[in-house]
Write a protein that binds this DNA or RNA. Structure first.
Lengths: 149, 149
DNA sequence: CTACTTGCAAATGCTTTGCAGGAGA
DNA sequence: TCTCCTGCAAAGCATTTGCAAGTAG
């Protein structure tokens, strides 16, 4: 997937924050940049110990909560139940995940139009046959990343 | 999916426990029966407040840990990061999940051979193109269940 | 000046663990 | 009788929150 340029990302986030009367403070900008550079979901602790080591965890969590509330962020959980945050689909585009079961690193992937349509159709089919109103789907591919394999 | 009969499930679990020198105590039997009846992953708290209300949470967690360690159980997490437990794939068969975003109930589903093969092939294709050694995949369909829709 | 943000410290909630008693083989 | 299992209470850890101080508009 071709990533959104950081400049455009900042602009879109700032606009969305503005519409919700929330300031795009320096701390929040730094956070967005860090997550943009990550290339996949990251935990608060991970960000705190790497790119954002000068930001107190509680402040980081507050940023996370604020951004999640207005849809900038989405929260998932790793195999230990620790929260992982990534940019929302409307900012990042629809995608799926490669999850390395050895080092736990998660990588965003784009299936491409053909395969994506197939997955969407399969999901819709099975949802319908269970009286379920589908609103989305997630496909995680588990295995060993290039480094661990 | 046609569920494994409870009797057969008990037998298989007991055998596996025996091979690991672990007793199939009454408490563990009650737990397996409760999870069998659930039809999808359940949290410790959920089981504690419904079927297993006489079992202390700490004991329940201990049962969970023991059974997870030897592969009887698999642990996932709901949207709030709370641990959910279900029988392992070798006991339950490969399957996917319908997740209701309103009431949070998770239901096991079987795609059927054709669709399952398609998902497996798509996953394998995308894994290969990223230098990733695939060992498995999960497909979650999100939406509203029959009751909430 | 006012409203939004941040940091610290304390609290919360899920989950794990030490230890002593209980029960099955 | 020996080993494994259970319960209670206490500890652990990720995450949240109250409150006071800081800062941008």
């Amino acid at each position: 997937m071709q990533p959104t340029p950081l400049t455009e990302l900042h602009a879109r986030v700032e606009k969305h924050l503005g519409e919700n009367n929330i300031r795009y403070s320096t701390g929040r900008q730094k956070f967005i940049a860090a997550l943009h550079a990550a290339g996949g979901p990251r935990s608060a602790t991970h960000l705190h110990t790497t790119e954002l080591d000068d930001v107190p965890l509680s402040s980081l969590y507050r940023t996370l909560t604020v951004l999640e509330d207005i849809g900038i962020l989405e929260r998932t959980h790793d195999s230990d139940g620790v929260a992982m945050f990534e940019l929302g689909e409307w900012l990042l585009g629809h995608h799926h995940h490669l999850i390395c079961t050895s080092c736990d690193v998660v990588t965003d992937i784009d299936l491409g139009e053909g395969l994506e349509d197939a997955v969407a159709e399969i999901s819709a089919t099975v949802a319908a046959s269970h009286g379920f109103t589908m609103t989305g789907h997630t496909l995680d591919v588990l295995g060993l990343c290039e480094d661990c394999g």
